[in-house]
């Protein structure tokens, strides 16, 4: 069941800081079992680097379960690597074979400045959420949870969008460096739910315009969907576009009529 990979060549991006220029550094992994996860392979490499008195490769990771959205590697030209619907941390060496050359790069986007080596700063995502990615609900004042029924299909659709782990792979994969999938996923999650209606249009407007100040534009390449570890569909982008358009023309004083 388990077998061993031999002679992998890693080309890893090393860069000292945000304002310095970086370059690829080549390492070889003589052998490793395919049970290992991709990040465990880098752990092992780092152990070796430290033993040789070199600095370990800096990369972002935490939960290693594909849920926190911290891990973020461009592997052989694909965000999160070759396996569909999988975050970097869940990628296992099974997906590779002996003798492979693996190129590892950080996410690249002006809104994701490189901090060091493979680690980037994704706070621009937080700014988008801060702009309106919430439902204003003061603590304590909430009515009984079952007061507003939410049809199952609706809550399922909201959940599909809400699954976004904020990893930034959509931006990394998008040829235009657009964050439409992330922003649309956040907007869709809240705008589909009854609780989200009151702020629906201001939310769409504020979040889209904040997104605009950091990221590129969507020309519907669909790369983001392919890279998304949660396989969020670009349908949400259409939804966002529609809500943004309505936000501009809606008479918000009469929303309750519709």
């Amino acid at each position: 069941m388990t077998n061993t990979l031999k002679n992998l060549t890693l080309k890893v991006w090393r860069q000292d800081g945000p304002n310095t220029s970086g370059s690829f550094e080549t390492h070889t992994i003589e052998e490793i079992t395919d049970e290992a996860s991709f990040l465990e392979m880098i752990d092992i490499l780092n152990e070796r680097l430290i033993e040789d008195g070199k600095e370990a490769i800096v990369f972002d990771h935490d939960c290693r379960e594909g849920i926190c959205g911290t891990c973020s590697l461009m592997i052989n030209g694909q965000a999160h690597g070759p396996e569909r619907g999988t975050a970097t941390c869940q990628l296992h060496m099974r997906k590779f074979s002996s003798g492979d050359t693996i190129v590892i790069e950080p996410w690249r986007a002006s809104a994701f400045p490189i901090i060091r080596d493979l680690m980037v700063d994704r706070s621009s995502f937080d700014r988008i959420v801060e702009a309106g990615g919430y439902i204003t609900a003061a603590t304590g004042g909430a009515p009984d949870a079952n007061l507003i029924p939410v049809p199952k299909p609706v809550s399922d659709a909201a959940m599909d969008a809400a699954q976004c782990i904020g990893c930034g792979a959509c931006v990394a994969a998008c040829p235009n460096g657009a964050a439409n999938l992330f922003t649309a996923a956040k907007i869709t999650h809240l705008n589909l739910l009854p609780q989200g209606q009151a702020e629906r249009y201001s939310r769409a407007e504020d979040m889209v315009e904040t997104m605009d100040s950091y990221f590129g534009s969507c020309t519907n390449h669909g790369e983001c969907e392919a890279a998304c570890p949660k396989e969020i569909s670009i349908d949400v982008i259409a939804l966002m576009n529609a809500d943004y358009r309505k936000a501009k023309v809606q008479n918000r004083k009469q929303l309750s009529r519709t």
Partner: peptide, 14 residues
């Protein structure tokens, strides 16, 4: 939005 391009080859899916 992406002043520095990817240095390795991209592998587009869609």
């Amino acid at each position: 939005a992406r002043p520095v391009k990817y240095q390795g080859a991209r592998d587009y899916q869609i």
